[in-house]
C-alpha cells in the first residue's frame, strides 16, 4: 500500500476516534460543571443528610447549578459537612437556604437552593448558614405520634 493512502486512513481513524471521545464527553456525558475549572466551592452543615451521596446534583428552581463533591462528618459539631462545586455562572445571596430534597417518591436525593434577598453574594469557600436536613421517615412518624399524643 502507498504510504500516503496509509497515512490518510490512519488520520481518518484517529479523527473518528477522537471525535467519538468528544461526542461521549459532550453529548452523552454532561461535561460542563464538574470538570470545568469555572467553579467555586460552598460548604453547608446539615444535621442529617439522609441518603445524599457524592455527585448528587445541587439544584435551584429545578435547574442543576452544581454538584456535591464531598461529604464529611464533623466531630466537633456532630453534623455533616457537605462540600459543593458550584457553576461560577450562577451566584447566590448570602442568606440562601439549602435543603436536602428527594426527587419523586423513590428518586435520588439532591440539594435544593432557594435564594434569599441579601445584597452580598456567596463567595468561593463560603459556608451556607441556613440549612434544612433531609426528611427521615422514622423522625416524621415519631413527630406525628408525639403531636397526636400531646393533643
Amino acid at each position: 500500500m502507498q504510504r500516503t493512502t496509509l497515512d490518510l486512513w490512519v488520520g481518518i481513524f484517529v479523527i473518528v476516534g477522537i471525535g467519538a471521545l468528544m461526542m461521549l464527553s459532550l453529548k452523552v456525558g454532561n461535561l460542563n460543571i464538574n470538570s470545568s475549572t469555572q467553579s467555586y466551592v460552598l460548604t453547608g452543615h446539615f444535621e442529617n443528610i439522609g441518603g445524599l451521596k457524592v455527585r448528587a446534583p445541587v439544584k435551584s428552581a429545578g435547574v442543576v447549578v452544581g454538584r456535591v463533591t464531598n461529604i464529611q462528618f464533623n466531630t466537633q459539631t456532630y453534623d455533616a459537612v457537605v462540600t459543593m462545586a458550584m457553576d461560577s455562572s450562577f451566584s447566590f445571596p448570602k442568606d440562601t437556604f439549602a435543603s436536602i430534597l428527594t426527587s419523586g417518591l423513590l428518586g435520588e436525593q439532591y440539594i435544593g437552593l432557594s435564594a434569599g434577598g441579601d445584597e452580598v453574594m456567596l463567595k468561593d469557600g463560603d459556608n451556607i448558614m441556613k440549612t434544612n436536613s433531609a426528611m427521615v421517615l422514622e423522625e416524621l412518624i415519631g413527630r406525628f405520634l408525639f403531636n397526636k399524643a400531646s393533643e
Binding site: S25, K27, G29, N30, L31, N34, S35, R55, V64
Partner: peptide, 19 residues
C-alpha cells in the same frame, strides 16, 4: 432519550473512568 442520558452520565466518573 438524550436528556435522561446526559443528566445521569458523568464525565469524570463514567466517561473518564471508561477511557
Amino acid at each position: 432519550y438524550w436528556s435522561q442520558m446526559q443528566s445521569a452520565v458523568d464525565f469524570h466518573f463514567d466517561i473518564l473512568n471508561g477511557f
